[in-house]
């Protein structure tokens, strides 16, 4: 089953990105955040693996990016989720164990909480760190 057929049943917006131009074979913006669970389940059945999870601060919202890929032949699928700053997102830890650290990293830098991940912690920043440094509102201290 191709990824297009899988994504047929989801409420989404197709983004115009191509492998030659952006490095993603397919890009989709999911309109409902809970769909990510069902989608991940379907993609895992089709032998995709989770390449990474990251986020971008779009100034009014946070955009999460889930990158899936196939090992046999490259087929990189970027799935986007737009969320508010204080919004929680379901965790993918039931499907991919690597999501544990990926999600912790996003939590560490953006403050996004992933519900269902029991190990969510500040992974890289030092102890006693306040704020979430990759938010555009966070400013580094002057020397």
């Amino acid at each position: 089953m191709s990824v297009i057929t899988i994504l047929d049943s989801f409420d989404k917006e197709v983004l115009e990105q191509s492998y030659e131009k952006n490095g993603f074979n397919h890009s989709y913006l999911l309109r409902k955040k809970d769909d990510i669970i069902e989608l991940t389940k379907r993609l895992k059945e089709e032998e995709y693996f989770l390449e990474t999870i990251t986020a971008v601060d779009k100034k009014e919202k946070i955009r999460l990016i889930y990158i899936f890929n196939k090992m046999q032949k490259v087929h990189r699928v970027a799935v986007y989720l737009d969320i508010d700053y204080s919004e929680d997102v379901p965790s993918l830890i039931d499907f991919f164990k690597s999501a544990d650290w990926f999600e912790s990293e996003v939590y560490d830098f953006f403050g996004v909480k992933f519900t269902g991940n029991p190990n969510l912690k500040r992974l890289l920043t030092p102890e006693g760190m306040e704020g979430y440094p990759l938010l555009k509102s966070w400013k580094a201290e002057e020397d």
Partner: peptide
């Protein structure tokens, strides 16, 4: 726009993602 490029380093898949 957004750009992603990956190479095989001596440890595995390295991807650079630029917005």
């Amino acid at each position: 726009g957004e750009y992603y490029f990956a190479v095989e380093t001596s440890r595995g898949l390295l991807g650079v993602y630029l917005v």
